[in-house]
């Protein structure tokens, strides 16, 4: 696969490490959320046959975490964003 890195352009998927669903960005706050909520966060994922937003890490590159929108059936990649931008758009700060 080829991932079009927003900063570095087209890069071979071999340079990346895959983590999983983008929802891993949505970590609850440990001081307010309980075990149930963290359990959902840590274990429950959708597993779509189709468009999937997922986290990839450019380990053999610039160490950017990326959110890659990929079709799990065709492997077509339609969007690649810096995970930091996605996290900020979701309202995450410090």
């Amino acid at each position: 696969m080829i991932i079009h890195h927003p900063i570095l352009g087209p890069r071979d998927a071999q340079e990346f490490v895959y983590l999983g669903d983008e929802s891993l960005i949505d970590r609850p706050d440990g001081m307010s959320a309980g075990i149930e909520e963290f359990h959902d966060y840590a274990y429950n994922r959708t597993n779509p046959a189709g468009e999937h937003r997922e986290l990839w890490y450019h380990e053999q590159g610039d160490r950017s975490w990326l959110v890659v929108t990929r079709n799990t059936v065709t492997h077509e990649i339609t969007k690649v964003e810096l995970a930091r931008d996605v996290a900020r758009a979701k309202g995450r700060t410090k």
Binding site: V17, L19, L24, I25, R27, L55, Y57, E59, R63, S64, W65, L82, A83, R84, V86, A87, R88, R92, T93, K94
Partner: peptide
Amino acid sequence: RHLEFCRQCLWPDM
């Protein structure tokens, strides 16, 4: 890798 994840994805403005 984990620290980079925490830094970029969980607390992006730190």
